[in-house]
Design a protein around this nucleic acid. Structure first.
Length: 254
DNA sequence: TTCCAGACTA
DNA sequence: TAGTCCGGAA
């Protein structure tokens, strides 16, 4: 009996006050002013293009995603689209030209290589479309769990898992939205999917990415502006230490 | 765990 | 100017 009770307790774990915290994040995100809101990868496809091409655009923009600066990815996508972004066009493009077009994106040399290889695989095996399972997407060079899950959701409209990027990973740990601290995004994804109801899986990426771009930033988070400052374990301790040493401000809110 | 290719910021 | 940063691969 005790074992079963423990087991049930384990099954039912969820973070304290998560609903209230989530509502607060929704409130902070209601103006949609974060870069992800206007330049996220779902905004990079050509919706007038045929579905196959639109899906390819989505995959490419995910593969070009760069730091916290969606503007850079967006600009690179615009340039590529101006060239006509299809599998054959990408294959025909020489690596140097491609490199120049996507240059401001971080890791551009690697990304040129991945894009070329991926385009070749799409041509050979998928009739110039993109694969429609997480596993097959992840088998493409340069595509890992985060891109695969987001791509399933955005390109195919199928929810396969939470897209955990650096923002979702960092914030989930700050809020203690994972049962135990996690040290990689895959562990965070599992930790979140454990308790978060499926109907929130799609929203959570968009919500936390924008929140992470504007308030819960990796360095110098703006805890004093955050509606969750008293609910968040990280916020409570960071504001406490800020009070202790006012000469060294942790948050330079401006 | 380190690398990538720079950009940003404290 | 030094420190930190994406996400995937090796």
């Amino acid at each position: 009996c005790t074992a079963i009770a423990t087991e049930e307790k384990k099954e039912k774990w969820e973070p304290e006050n998560w609903q209230e915290v989530l509502d607060n994040i929704r409130e902070m995100r209601k103006d949609r002013t974060a870069p992800v809101d206007t330049m996220g990868c779902e905004k990079c496809g050509d919706e007038t293009a045929e579905p196959k091409v639109y899906r390819f655009h989505t995959l490419v923009s995910l593969m070009l995603s760069s730091q916290t600066k969606d503007t850079v990815t967006h600009a690179a996508m615009q340039k590529l689209r101006a060239q006509g972004l299809t599998v054959p066009k990408l294959l025909a493009m020489d690596p140097d030209t491609l490199g120049k077009l996507i240059y401001p994106v971080g890791f551009w040399k690697r990304k040129v290589e991945y894009l070329k290889k991926t385009a070749q695989i799409l041509k050979d095996q998928y009739d110039e479309d993109i694969p429609n399972t997480v596993e097959s997407l992840q088998s493409l060079p340069g595509v890992g769990p985060k891109m695969a899950h987001l791509c399933m959701d955005i390109a195919w409209g199928k929810l396969s898992g939470i897209g955990v990027d650096t923002h979702v990973h960092r914030i989930s740990n700050r809020l203690k939205w994972v049962k135990k601290p996690t040290n990689n995004p895959e562990a965070t994804r599992k930790g979140l999917e454990f308790w978060l109801s499926v109907d929130l899986w799609s929203e959570i990426n968009w919500l936390l990415v924008g929140f992470g771009q504007e308030i819960c930033t990796p360095v110098s988070p703006k805890c004093s502006q955050c509606l969750n400052k008293s609910l968040c374990p990280f916020g409570r301790s960071s504001l406490r230490s800020q009070k202790k040493s006012p000469g060294v401000p942790l948050n330079l809110d401006s």
